[in-house]
Design a protein around this nucleic acid. Structure first.
Length: 547
RNA sequence: GCGGUCGUCGUCUAGCCUGGCAGGACGUCAGCUUCCCAAGCUGAAGAUCGCGGGUUCGAAUCCCGCCGACCGCACCA
């Protein structure tokens, strides 16, 4: 069995994930996350937010999975997310119609009508690559799940192919919430749906999948990005390096300065992503950033890097995509709805001096009532009300805006987008190893941080009772506790190692004397004796991934 | 959709060619044992053999159809 097979097998047995609907024979492209898989996924989400969201004050939303037709029409998905499939009438083989025509030397534009493509194929007597047949029928295959909203068939909707559109269409409300500040980062963690023709490779290509997306809205004239770090190298298989197949190692700063990464924020996100994957246990040399060239990119992207992780059995596998979406999406929704989706920036062009009278001081003069009716004037030697010169305490000169320039523009978007299911698989893959013939998921300690096992050393009543007390205390501190009092202790430890549970707490005879328990580390098997009441802080400290 | 391989307890699998009680291992559970790493002993539960049809006295086994998985082709906007 290959390592990947062993990981998948163990993932199923230990409750991480497995193919869905198996009692009905299964349907490819759907996976169910089990109890530990659900914990793990939540922790990966938290880690991601700790790295990509919280440090920058970015915001998170939760929008519907179902989108009305108009939104995806405007975003370009209705036209770009479908393929014209040509079927050979003789042998039934299916190919993409535009590819067949291209191979035959006929160029067609995107989004051509199927009837037109069919006519072209038949007119040009394009041969079936398989049987040589020359008769074709062309039908569209839409890669999105289609549904109806309400009872009317014409009221079409789709399950979202990405969470991003739910953010773009709410731009105005979010921009308002953010007090009209750019850059503005908005994230969404949720499901995306793509009705793949033929999904393969288990968790890698799903029809329903979890994604974590960040849409960063910036002023294209003034990115306002953090300083780019120089302390780490990124392995960039950029457009020029692709010919050699060897990634160039550059720091984020170098990559930006050399023009290889077009925007500063994008370079910064690549850096964060590398660190994120490091935190999930993927070493540097098993990571790279692969640049997509023009024809390979999505319809909305001006520059795309895929973050890839090496898996022996699968090769380089994409876990995240970084796209420079420019103003494509906001512009499209603006055109489609007529609603303005601008950001504004104000810049002071000139100022003027203005006098503010200190009323309290002025009232010390007898004729203050008359003076208050006059307008203050700034003269060369001081400030006057009429022909009375004021003393210093009676007025203040302030600078006021005379003229300002208001610039309205459509923000540009830089999008890091992560596949959570793939990340979960990659994390388990790199955590999997063997020690003394046992399987262990040596997950980074920051993962599964809220899961802990409590075991009585042997199943005697007084131990079980005490262990249940410990369990209840930890539950009150927010831990998810696995309680196991069955069988020989070594076997229970082994079972927990295999599941990837970071710590096992054991109640023994000493516990009954002095209120201490042993805490066993999954990776070193070393045990420490800890006071029961110190357990929560001890465990929190040990599982803080930043330490 | 096509071609190849395959589908038997939770998992891995034997049996299929040559039709005759569906067996093992691991895991799970229970009892005994057990004060620290898959230990020992005893026992139990768990599979209408992917689904449907056909041939046959009799089908996991042979035949047909369907479903699903994996690998290639194609597809992955």
């Amino acid at each position: 069995m290959s390592k990947l097979d062993e990981v998948l097998n163990l993932a199923k047995i230990k409750g991480y994930f497995w193919p869905s609907f198996e009692i009905y024979g299964g349907v490819s492209g759907f996976y169910t996350f089990g109890p530990l898989g659900t914990y793990l996924q939540k922790d990966i989400e938290e880690l991601w937010k700790d790295i990509f969201v919280k440090p920058f004050g970015f915001i998170e939303i939760d929008s519907p999975d179902v989108l009305p037709y108009q939104i995806l029409k405007a975003s370009g998905h209705v036209d770009n997310f479908k393929d014209p499939m040509a079927e050979c009438k003789k042998c039934g083989a299916k190919y993409r119609a535009d590819h067949l025509l291209k191979d035959a030397g006929v160029e067609v534009s995107e989004g051509a009508e199927p009837s037109y493509l069919e006519a072209l194929l038949n007119k040009n007597t394009v041969k079936c690559p398989k049987c040589g047949g020359q008769e074709w029928s062309v039908k569209l295959y839409l890669n999105m799940f289609e549904t109806n909203i309400g009872p009317y068939a014409e009221n079409k909707g789709y399950l979202r192919p990405e969470t991003a559109q739910g953010i773009f269409v709410e731009f105005n409300s979010l921009y308002n919430y953010n007090r009209e500040q750019l850059p503005m980062g908005v994230v969404q963690i949720g499901k995306g749906y793509r009705n793949e023709i033929s999904p393969r490779q288990g968790l890698i290509r799903l029809r329903e999948f979890h994604m974590m997306e960040l849409e960063l809205f910036i002023d294209p004239q003034e990115e306002d990005a953090p300083d780019l770090p120089n302390d780490q190298k990124l392995r960039l298989l950029h457009e020029k390096a692709r010919a050699s197949g060897e990634p160039e190692e550059l720091t984020p700063q170098e990559a930006y300065q050399k023009g290889i990464v077009k925007t500063k924020w994008l370079a910064f996100f690549l850096y964060l992503s590398k660190k994120f994957l490091n935190s999930l246990g993927v070493p540097d040399e098993k990571q790279r950033f692969f640049e997509k060239i023009a024809g390979e990119r999505a319809h909305y992207s001006a520059q795309t890097f895929d973050h890839e992780v090496f898996i022996e059995e699968l090769g380089w596998t994409e876990v995240a995509g970084f796209a420079y979406r420019t103003d494509f999406d906001l512009k499209s929704h603006m055109q489609s709805t007529g609603k303005e989706m601008y950001a504004t920036k104000r810049k002071v062009v000139s100022t003027k001096e203005n006098v503010v009278i200190n009323k309290e001081e002025l009232m010390k003069r007898e004729n203050w009532k008359e003076l208050m009716k006059l307008k203050p004037e700034i003269k060369a030697d001081g400030v006057y009300l009429g022909n009375i010169k004021l003393n210093d305490k009676e007025y203040k000169i302030i600078q006021e805006v005379e003229k300002e320039e208001i610039r309205k523009f459509i923000p540009h978007v830089i999008e890091p987008s992560f596949g959570l299911d793939r990340l979960t698989l990659v994390t388990l893959y790199y955590a999997y190893n063997k020690k003394d013939g046992r399987n262990i998921f040596s997950l980074p300690k920051g993962l599964l941080k809220n899961v802990v096992a409590v075991l009585p050393l042997v199943s005697k009543d007084e131990f079980v009772k005490k262990a249940l007390e410990v369990r209840n205390m930890l539950v009150n501190y927010g831990f998810n506790v696995i309680f196991d009092d069955k069988g020989y202790i070594g076997k229970r430890y082994a079972r927990l190692d295999e599941s990837g549970i970071p710590f096992a707490i054991t109640v023994d005879s000493t516990t009954l004397e002095d209120e201490t328990v042993t805490v066993r580390d999954r990776d070193t098997w070393a045990q420490e004796r800890i006071k029961i009441r110190d357990l929560p802080s001890y465990l929190r400290e040990k599982t803080n991934w930043r330490l």
